[in-house]
Design a protein around this nucleic acid. Structure first.
Ligand SMILES: [Zn+2]
Ligand SMILES: [Zn+2]
Length: 881
DNA sequence: TTAGCCTTGATG
DNA sequence: CATCAAGGCTAA
């Protein structure tokens, strides 16, 4: 049984996701002036509004202007539309209600993206693929709209909705259901700026030097103005991204006509002219390109401009994008396929099976058995490694073939990958790899995005063929993006602008497809206006780093997995010794690798091994009494104690709070106990009422079974926080800037190990067979992590964020939501609900056991946990009323 | 128009 | 010289 282990890379703060969440405060529209020629050289500073970055360009034919372009600077806003004041006229363009005289008026009902509209003015542009008939065909799969927030398929949800937690669920039907995507998240942390000028200039010169011998120079030297308006969309809050030329701006006539086009017809290439003027656009009859984005899309758009992703250094923007894409895609897929769980699983299985041969999905299956051996030796990140990891199979194979230079090489390479398109279920592309149908019989669908860098195009789910315009995408999306930008195509969506895009339907709505391209982070700047071929652009280094990083993450995951296995496997191990090692092992390796790959990450600082002793230090600050929530005690920041080494320097850790003690003394004596093992450490219960049988947790006199009390004693909050903050501190100590994303992964890893360690030593669980333990953990670790964070927040006042040693702000809340920003609302809701229920320590522990020992499975020891369930039910019943 | 395959050409 | 991402070409 493969351990169904969620890849941390997908849990990471995905730039996309985060940015997505970020409020699109910058609704203020701006106009950016971009010189297409330089665009690929330019890099917008991270600070600039992201929106400005994505605009397709349009060119004018003024050669002279080319010389005058300002390079490597965010182009100044030429026109400030201030929230759609100016150029209001333009906003007409993509008014939400463009009721095109479509064939199907009730289009709203059939959310189809058929582009078939009867255009008043232009000759009907027919896409062969887009036929009215298709509408019915589409419907089934394009239910995206109804699937709101992706996050909803929360881990907890999957789990808790089952079985006995019903007690709680019943009382709060909505408790486990996410209502909507929260659009805010993570305070940005200043990150590096964009590319250096020198580099840009260099490229620019280089670029220009090549222009002359380029066949298609005609498209050079055009000014492009991109207008962004807040679309006044009463209902949908659409926003419009307009790209217009000077001409269009000044010429009302043109502007109007173009708007009309936008409104009621799909416009390709040269506007009213022939629909398929491939490349004819050069003439630019219509020099305006407008695209409307949905609100949320806009948010994504935000993120898309990877350059502003706050959590990563400029160099790693790509990472952000990719991650985002993955996550977004995953979520989308989940939504799409969610309707029918069974089918979904099935298709997944099929897909995975069919592709497994050619692709290494890095599923636990692969990892757990053989990973370690091959892993350890390789520290360099070259191609060999990548291949070993199964990464980038397509690209490599292809490139090998083409090496001959002759011409025919390519075909061979393609053969290797042919499997994926086998058709199958309509949504195959999307679901493929997105969900892990582990234990399909259990009915659980765990959100397991494909491996980073992996296999699926973030836009359509097809297999990626390499990095294209900023991130890994498939060949078709690459081409589509290129065509769209190069030819300045303008599309419109006849549906709701949120058509589902997957491999099978990507052709249906180019508008939404392009939107998605933008949203996932494809970069307009990467399309060369001068169409120069070959060479490298500024993104090259980022691609490289991205690869390295992904590889690193994969390894990290593998190591973590291995550690879990080791930990679980060594049941005999004595409590004391195991935990330290189990944690550290992975980190050692990881750090080494990071040193190589990601300089920003502290890496070296860690003498991971030294940490083990922490417990002693851990003493401090945990508030003993779970029941009595002591808000002040653990307060996020300074609150927690730090490990010995870092401890002293800890001053900075809590920029905010004082690190000085939070009742350290209280627990000092306890330290000795805790040193032995987590399970041994005593918590509140012990301290307060070591011997009392009564439940000290809850204010009300409540009978608590000894069992629950025992459970509670297995929890060591102090250590939990101590480990958390210690790790944070260590990682940031002496570091100018750490990659918060990496850091989050590390913390989650650590949490995971702690979790496993805890489980290993708890009643019932420790008596299970190792295999069963694996299964249980596999299914529960993520939920338990979330629960732990809820618990820490509710009972120990864990804050939303903390200040690292170096001053960076680390978002603790992100840990609780496993790095999936969409879950914020859901998470908060749960927390509120739990608090309303007076969720106490006992409840927490019971729930944790419930999650861990989920009876819905087929485990032999099922009976053993009945008692636990009963306890929980009983307790829940207590509150129900 | 799409999307797969091919050619380019800066990089290291 | 090998890479590999960007543009080009062209059946379908
Ligand atoms: Zn794609
Ligand atoms: Zn659409």
């Amino acid at each position: 049984m493969p351990l169904n282990y969620i890849n941390f890379e997908h849990l990471q703060l995905s730039p996309s996701t985060f940015t997505t969440m970020r409020p699109s405060h910058d609704s203020v529209s701006t106009t950016t002036h971009i010189d297409m020629d330089q665009s690929r050289i330019l890099e917008v500073p991270s600070s600039s509004s992201i929106l400005n970055q994505y605009h397709p360009q349009h060119q004018q034919s003024q050669q002279q202007q080319q010389q005058q372009q300002i390079h490597h600077q965010p182009l100044p806003s030429i026109i400030n539309l201030g929230n759609s004041n100016v150029n209001r006229s333009n906003s007409i363009t993509s008014t939400p209600s463009p009721q095109p005289t479509t064939n199907n008026n009730n289009s709203s009902g059939n959310n189809n993206n058929c582009n078939v509209t009867s255009l008043p003015q232009s000759p009907p542009i027919s896409f062969q693929n887009i036929v009215v008939n298709d509408i019915s065909f589409n419907n089934p799969t394009t239910t995206e709209q109804q699937l709101t927030s992706p996050g909803h398929r929360f881990l907890i949800n999957n789990r808790l909705s089952h079985n006995d937690i019903a007690a709680i669920a019943t009382q709060h039907p909505n408790l486990f259901r996410s209502q909507q995507i929260q659009k805010e998240m993570l305070p940005p942390i200043g990150s590096g700026s964009g590319l250096e000028l020198s580099e840009m200039q260099h490229q620019h010169h280089h670029h220009q030097s090549h222009n002359h011998h380029h066949q298609q120079n005609h498209q050079k030297n055009n000014d492009l103005k991109i207008l962004q308006n807040d679309m006044i969309k009463p209902a949908n809050h659409h926003q419009v991204l307009q790209i217009t030329s000077d001409e269009s701006l000044t010429d009302p006539k043109k502007a109007l006509s173009s708007q009309m086009n936008d409104n009621c017809q799909p416009v390709f290439g040269g506007g009213g002219i022939s629909g398929n003027g491939n490349g004819n656009d050069d003439s630019d009859e219509r020099k305006k390109m407008s695209t409307s984005f949905e609100d949320n899309i806009l948010g994504l758009n935000d993120s898309a401009s990877c350059f502003s992703y706050p959590y990563i250094l400029d160099n790693e923007m790509i990472d952000a994008d990719t991650d985002t894409a993955d996550l977004a895609a995953t979520i989308a897929e989940n939504n799409g396929g969610g309707a029918s769980g069974g089918d979904c699983n099935k298709s997944l299985l099929e897909n995975s099976a069919s592709t497994s041969s050619s692709r290494n999905y890095h599923s636990l299956q692969n990892m757990r058995t053989d990973s370690i051996s091959s892993m350890d030796s390789s520290l360099d990140l070259d191609k060999s490694d990548l291949e070993k990891e199964g990464y980038q199979d397509n690209a490599s194979s292809h490139s090998h073939q083409s090496g001959s230079g002759g011409g025919g090489g390519g075909s061979n390479g393609s053969n290797l990958n042919s499997s994926s398109s086998s058709g199958g279920p309509p949504n195959n592309g999307s679901s493929n790899g997105m969900l892990n149908a582990n234990n399909s019989n259990s009915g659980y669908i765990t959100l397991i995005p494909p491996p980073v860098g992996g296999e699926l195009c973030p836009v359509c789910g097809d297999k990626v063929s390499g990095y294209h315009y900023g991130l890994l995408t498939c060949e078709s999306c690459k081409g589509f993006f290129k065509r769209t930008v190069q030819n300045k195509k303008v599309y419109t969506c006849v549906a709701e602008r949120n058509c589902h895009i997957d491999k099978t339907q990507r052709k249906r709505c180019p508008f939404c497809r392009f939107n998605k391209c933008i949203n996932v982070g494809m970069k307009l700047e990467a399309v060369r206006e001068d169409r120069m071929r070959g060479g490298r652009n500024k993104f090259g280094p980022m691609y490289k780093r991205d690869r390295a990083r992904k590889l690193q993450i994969m390894r990290q995951r593998q190591i973590a997995l291995q550690a879990i296995r080791t930990t679980i496997g060594s049941a005999d191990i004595k409590p004391g010794q195991l935990s330290p090692n189990s944690y550290q092992t992975p980190y050692n390796t990881i750090n080494i690798k990071q040193e190589i790959q990601i300089p920003q990450v502290s890496s070296l600082t860690q003498s991971p091994d030294s940490s083990p002793s922490p417990i002693a230090i851990a003493l401090g600050q945990v508030n003993p009494n779970t029941t009595s929530v002591i808000p002040t005690s653990l307060t996020g920041n300074g609150g927690v104690s730090t490990m010995g080494t870092t401890n002293t320097s800890a001053a900075s850790l809590g920029g905010i709070g004082s690190n000085s003690g939070n009742g350290n003394n209280t627990y000092e004596h306890d330290s000795s106990v805790s040193l032995q093992h987590t399970s041994n450490s005593k918590i509140c219960y012990d301290n307060t009422n070591p011997s009392s049988t009564a439940d000290s947790m809850s204010s009300e006199p409540l009978r608590v079974s000894p069992m629950i009390r025992d459970f509670v004693q297995t929890i060591d909050d102090r250590e939990w926080q101590a480990q958390l903050f210690d790790l944070l501190q260590k990682q940031s100590y002496n570091q100018v800037e750490v990659d918060l994303f990496e850091l989050m992964c590390k913390v989650l890893d650590q949490n995971l190990f702690s979790q496993v360690d805890w489980a290993r030593n708890t009643v019932f669980f420790k008596d299970l067979k190792v295999d069963d333990q694996m299964k249980l953990l596999q299914h529960s670790w993520s939920d338990m992590l979330v629960l732990d964070h809820l618990h820490q927040r509710i009972h120990n006042s864990l804050q939303d964020e903390t200040t690292l040693h170096n001053g960076q702000i680390f978002n603790l809340l992100n840990l609780g939501i496993l790095g999936v920003p969409d879950l914020v609302d859901f998470f908060n809701k749960i927390q509120c609900d739990l608090q309303e229920l007076k969720f106490d320590m006992g409840d927490y522990v019971c729930m944790k056991f419930l999650i861990l020992l989920n009876p819905s499975k087929f485990f032999c020891d099922y009976s053993k946990i009945n008692s636990i369930i009963i306890c929980v039910i009983f307790r829940c019943a207590k509150y129900s009323k």
